[in-house]
Every structure is written in structure tokens, then in C-alpha cells.
Simulated scan of single mutants.
Amino acid sequence: MSLKIRLARGGSKKRPFYQIVVADARAPRDGRFLEKVGSWNPMLGKDHEKRVELNAERIQEWIAKGAQPTDRVLRFMAEAGLAQRPARNNPNKAKPGKKAQERAAEKAQKAADAAEAAAAAE
């Protein structure tokens, strides 16, 4: 049985509230879970102490039993000092696509030709 420490959504429409639960990976998002180990209220301010609540000792016990936290829960655990989250970096994400690079090269070439023509005219 593959265990996950993940979020289960609660609250009403447009007012989310999440329980941090330990559940079987095959169970539905808001369905059956084994234990509630914390909560996250995204409606509160980022500096509010009740925004993220974690039961650290229970989380450590479940991780020792093989439970894997999801990325969002791992972020919360890293902020609380319970786990290390590896840094992710995608340097290619910010680069423009092929067509945009071709257009930029054409624009630079036209600017260089115009500058050259202006220098030759003088």
C-alpha cells in the first residue's frame, strides 16, 4: 500500500480550507484517509501562525513508515524545518521559443544594416 501525505480540500465554494492527511495513494482526493496530521488555510495572511498547522511527530512517524509527501506538503514541511526540499531549477523555461529567437535575430540584423547604411551615408 502506497501512502501519501497530501491535501484534502474542504470549505465552501471560493473559501478553500485544506486538511493535511495521510491516505492511500489510490483513494480519492477528499475521500478516505488514515489520519489527519495538519491543516492549511490559504485565506489567512502568509504571516499568520494558524495558516499552516502541522503535527510534526505524527508526520515523522508516517514518513518512517514509508509515506511520501506531495510537493505542496513538502514545501510546508521544509518551512517548518521537518524535511529538506531539493531546489528545482528549469533554466530553459524563461528562454524564448525558436520563432521568437528567429524574430529577435532578424530584428538585430535589420538594426545592424540600418546603422551600417547610416554610417555609409555620412
Rank of each mutant, 00 (worst) to 15 (best):
98 K>D: 06
66 G>Q: 01
81 G>I: 04
97 G>N: 15
54 L>V: 12
78 A>I: 07
55 N>M: 12
80 A>G: 09
65 K>R: 01
81 G>R: 03
80 A>H: 12
99 K>I: 15
94 A>F: 14
82 L>S: 06
57 E>N: 11
90 N>W: 14
88 R>T: 03
92 N>Y: 15
97 G>Y: 13
76 F>V: 03
99 K>S: 13
68 Q>M: 04
52 V>S: 02
82 L>I: 08
81 G>Y: 07
88 R>E: 04
95 K>G: 10
80 A>M: 06
58 R>V: 01
55 N>G: 05
96 P>R: 11
57 E>C: 05
68 Q>L: 01
89 N>R: 14
57 E>S: 11
91 P>R: 09
60 Q>K: 12
83 A>I: 01
65 K>L: 02
77 M>P: 09
77 M>T: 04
90 N>I: 07
95 K>F: 14
56 A>L: 11
101 Q>F: 03
85 R>Q: 12
67 A>S: 02
61 E>Y: 13
69 P>R: 00
81 G>H: 06
77 M>R: 05
54 L>C: 14
75 R>V: 07
74 L>I: 03
57 E>K: 10
54 L>S: 11
99 K>T: 15
55 N>W: 13
58 R>L: 10
87 A>E: 15
73 V>A: 02
60 Q>N: 09
74 L>N: 06
62 W>M: 04
98 K>I: 08
68 Q>K: 09
64 A>T: 05
57 E>Q: 15
61 E>C: 00
